[in-house]
């Protein structure tokens, strides 16, 4: 028992030294300490966009809070539970934010640490409620608008998409992209493939090249690789995913962007309300995401590359975007498994 206490004290002491702490915390709180566990690494669009948004929120200082963060290396499986337990036992964090499919691990800890707020993100999580909040991200709306553009831009009549794994929050944007393309070009052929990994650029290139060989000339790439776009620069235009990767290839026209800022702000508000007003945690048991109108998603700038596609494609996109902004275009949500048609 003594040994156990000693090493816990050691951990607490070390984490204490790495996370600024307010010794006598005034009411309302002035500081929020977040431990973040990511699944892939900041180089992936999923984690990278989140960490960038977190930095923006820290600078914005909601509720005048000083927000400090500690970000883990990419972790998965049982390691996540161990890491979360270490963070929780240290007593040095207010929110443990698991930025992936971590509900199995959080379920083991949430009742043991009822004063901590847990966050899990994305598909594959089971709703837990209580002190566990389920954050979600959908970028199907900008994907649909870029699909409208693709429907006009294709000359071969074949648009394609290479996805990571067929999950709810991957299927939605691929389906939306194809739906957008079909809305302006019903006769279009769509091709879809999944690399069966969250991050495998080498395999991604193989799949993209295969689709290009099959006639795809507008490619919606969700797989963090754009080298095939460069290799086929005479024929292919690429649409990125989640972040603005325009500098990675001159053939990238745009991308649906994931903006996590409103999600983070919403959950900071929840924590603040709990701390300042004593409002009990009431974690959502349904998927909750911020729409494009709410600032949770956007379309990346064309960066002056409009000439990659016909003018009518840009015009159709602008018209669809204006209709969405005016509330006249309802973009359907379809999470079924996308298939080539």
């Amino acid at each position: 028992m003594q040994i156990r206490l000693k090493w816990k004290a050691f951990i607490a002491a070390f984490l204490f030294s790495t996370a600024p702490v307010t010794l006598a915390q005034a009411d309302p709180p002035k500081q929020l300490r977040i431990a973040v566990i990511i699944g892939n690494g900041p180089e992936s669009a999923w984690d990278g966009t989140f960490l960038e948004a977190l930095e923006r929120v820290k600078k914005a200082k909601p509720h005048d809070l000083t927000i400090t963060t500690k970000v883990s290396d990419p972790l998965w499986g049982n390691d996540v539970e161990s890491a979360m337990r270490l963070y929780a036992q240290s007593g040095q964090f207010d929110i443990i934010w698991g930025h992936s499919t971590y509900s199995d691990q959080i379920a083991q800890l949430k009742d043991e640490f009822p004063d901590l707020m847990f966050v899990m993100t994305g598909s594959g999580n089971a709703p837990l409620g209580g002190n566990v909040y389920w954050n979600y991200k959908r970028v199907h709306e900008p994907a649909y608008l870029l699909g409208v553009l693709a429907g006009h831009a294709t000359t071969s009549g074949v648009v394609g998409s290479v996805g990571t794994l067929p999950a709810d929050d991957v299927n939605d944007e691929i389906n939306a992209f194809f739906a957008g393309a079909r809305s302006v070009n019903p006769g279009i052929v769509t091709k879809v493939a999944f690399i069966q990994s969250w991050y495998d650029p080498a395999k991604a290139a193989e799949y993209m090249n295969s689709q290009i060989a099959a006639g795809v000339d507008v490619m919606f790439s969700l797989v963090d690789n754009f080298s095939p776009c460069d290799e086929h620069k005479e024929t292919v235009v690429c649409i990125g995913n989640f972040r603005d990767d325009w500098q990675r290839s001159p053939r990238i026209l745009s991308a649906p962007l994931a903006l996590w800022d409103p999600d983070i702000e919403r959950l900071v508000d929840v924590w603040y309300d709990h701390e300042a007003n004593g409002t009990p945690y009431a974690g959502n048991t349904q998927m909750l995401w911020s729409t494009m109108a709410e600032g949770g998603a956007a379309v990346a700038s064309f960066h002056g590359r409009e000439s990659l596609v016909p003018a009518k494609a840009i015009a159709a996109f602008e018209a669809a975007k204006a209709a969405y902004d005016a509330g006249k275009l309802q973009i359907p949500l379809d999470v079924s498994l996308p298939v080539s048609k």
Partner: peptide, 27 residues
Amino acid sequence: VFFALAWLISGPWMASGGTASYQQTGL
């Protein structure tokens, strides 16, 4: 075997109910 597993956990064995579709079995 890897791709067969991927098919199984995104099809016949995929978790259903309570969670969004994802490549995994239920608990």
